[in-house]
């Protein structure tokens, strides 16, 4: 059970800024250039009183490094993605981000034993309140795991 011993391990917190220019580029890349994200006037008049970032934006943040966690460079399959928000992210705010190995299981399937690695990324405001979490389930096939052991 390759990653079993990593469960519960966390990275150190990294401070990230929700940068307007980065958000602008991000929303353009997903074809979602709504003024609520980048137009200051629209942001001010909105129910939030400021511009917000779209829900999948946390992909951009730096979550630090979980010591000892070595992932295969190739062949990972993204199985699931799950965001939870207490409120939207605001443009210009600072978010402290970190990452945790939440779970690892192996299951036998038609392609041998598949590993399911669950990593959760967290984002907190500067008072330590949780703003969002982002759970990713990555599937690691037996072939990929074996290739890694022999490299």
């Amino acid at each position: 059970m390759m990653y079993k011993h990593m469960i519960g391990k966390q990275s150190n917190k990294v401070k990230n800024t929700v940068e307007k220019g980065m958000v602008k580029r991000f929303v353009e890349s997903i074809g979602d250039p709504h003024p609520i994200y980048t137009n200051e006037e629209v942001g001010k008049k909105s129910r939030y009183g400021k511009n917000i970032a779209p829900p999948t934006y946390p992909r951009v943040f730096d979550y630090g490094v979980i010591e000892g966690l070595i992932l295969p460079e190739k062949g990972l399959i993204h199985g699931e993605q799950n965001y939870h928000y207490e409120r939207p992210l605001f443009i210009g705010e600072e978010i402290s981000c970190y990452s945790e190995v939440k779970n690892y299981v192996e299951k036998s399937g038609t392609n041998g034993r598949m590993g399911f690695l669950e990593i959760v990324n967290y984002g907190e405001d500067q008072e330590g309140n949780m703003i969002f979490s982002e759970k990713m389930v990555t599937i690691i096939t037996e072939t990929v795991r074996k290739a890694m052991c022999y490299e």
Binding site: D32, I36, I52, P54, E80
Partner: peptide, 29 residues
């Protein structure tokens, strides 16, 4: 990228951000 597709999917809700926000967004690829 799976996340490109997921990012696109969130657009369906963009015009409703004046009424609220996405609390949970869960997908399987």
């Amino acid at each position: 990228h799976g996340m490109w597709t997921m990012g696109n999917l969130s657009k369906v809700f963009t015009s409703y951000y004046e009424e609220g926000f996405i609390e949970n967004f869960q997908v399987r690829f």
